[in-house]
């Protein structure tokens, strides 16, 4: 089944609605909340991974939009400052989904955002503080 990641922006009044419940029950989608910053009375954001059938995706997204939530494809939220990075590779030691890989021969740190689960282990591990999350 296809899996996609979305960046959801909640208007302040919608930020308390249990949307994941409806995605599961009404649309048969499997939600995986990777990151969320949701507080009553404030604009909220959620990085949501959905797994399901194509037609259910479309109906589920339509439901979210009808609820006043802005849905956009997930942007890369982890940023690597290449000027600061010294290519030590310590981030790769704590990245369990193997989203970060240091290619020794090329001398390049690869970041595969589709594998990233936004656990922030790399942010804390980086001795150069070169990795940041945008929200």
């Amino acid at each position: 089944m296809p899996r996609k990641r979305f960046d959801l922006t909640f208007p302040p009044r919608q930020a308390t609605k249990a949307i994941t419940y409806h995605l599961v029950k009404d649309f048969d989608l499997v939600p995986n909340i990777l990151r969320a910053a949701i507080q009553p009375g404030q604009e909220g954001r959620m990085l949501l991974e959905l797994t399901g059938r194509k037609e259910d995706f479309e109906a589920g997204i339509a439901f979210l939009e009808a609820e006043g939530i802005t849905v956009s494809p997930a942007a890369s939220d982890i940023r690597l400052d290449e000027e600061t990075c010294v290519l030590c590779g310590l981030c790769t030691a704590v990245c369990k989904p193997h989203a970060l890989e240091l290619a020794f021969e090329e001398g390049v740190l690869h970041f595969d955002k589709d594998k990233c689960v936004y656990c922030e282990a790399c942010v804390i591990a980086c001795p150069r503080r070169a990795i940041t999350l945008s929200f």
Partner: peptide
């Protein structure tokens, strides 16, 4: 190679010292 075996368990490895540098 990215992993080693310790006590029969496959363990993910990561360097601290920069090989490119």
């Amino acid at each position: 190679s990215g992993w080693i075996e310790i006590e029969g368990k496959k363990v993910q490895t990561g360097p601290i010292s920069s090989l490119p540098k």
